[in-house]
Amino acid sequence: MITFEYVEPESLEEVLALLEQHGEDAKVLAGGTGLINLMKQRLVQPAYLIGLRQLAHSPELAEIRPNSGLTIGALCSHRTIETSALIQHRLPLLATTFRHVASVRIRTAATLGGSLAHADPNQDPPPALLVLDARLRVQSHHGEREIELSDFFVDYYETALEPEELITTVIIPPQPADTGTAFLKFLPQTHDDYATIAVAALVSLDGDTIIRARLALGAAAATPLRVRAVETALRGQAPTPQVIHAAAALVAEEVDPLADFRGSVEYKRDMAVVFTQRAIEQAVTQARGASGNV
């Protein structure tokens, strides 16, 4: 392990002041499952590590709060989100998605904000959060701003977050009625693996017409990917197999996967189509049976 100085501020203000002071020399430590691994491999070598542990009881950073939509504190663990009765009731898509992440032990430590800032394109939560139109509230010593999640991921392990900024809250806007969702994670190897391809879909129906469709993929490019071409192709259409099939086929042109141990570029592209189709079908089925339940 590299050497560094660990600091553990008592308040958010102190955290932000330290980030302001140290900039790129500092990294923020939440669950550590991503960052500590990178540090052990010497891929990231911060001089200062700012531990957020003392903020674990800050309502803003650690709670899941209902409002017209929902806000989730960035320090909530994956396990907290997966098991939250509020999430299970209001946003079952998120409960399902977070349950697919790694193992219970990793989900216990890994936080929502940490995983987003980590920006590994193979992670499961971003596609689900993208179809929920999530926004991030980020703060710095100078103030706060909101970033659309779809604008947040810039490149491979790169985000729109400035070195002095901290993600404090994830904001999920209210979700429409008569809506179905799906999250599919393709795991052709073992169940503890990263996805070969992951797809989240959201479909709202008015009678037999798709009035809203959102689709996002993980492991399909250098960043998590919202695929608006598919959404446009579905909107205003009846969810027939032909429509879904044709819309899903558009994904092939949109994805730009990286070859890795979980599949070649060509295979991931083909699987993106297969799982997009399956996810839309599943979301449509759920929407048909839905009564305002997302």
């Binding site: 190897q189 073992t190 169940h191 503890d192 693996d193 990263y194 141990f261």
Partner: peptide, 16 residues
């Protein structure tokens, strides 16, 4: 050898 940790060299788990 390029898959040099157990996240990339996949041993069966209890779910497999």
């Amino acid at each position: 050898v390029t898959n040099v940790h157990l996240g990339d060299y996949k041993l069966p788990t209890s779910m497999d």
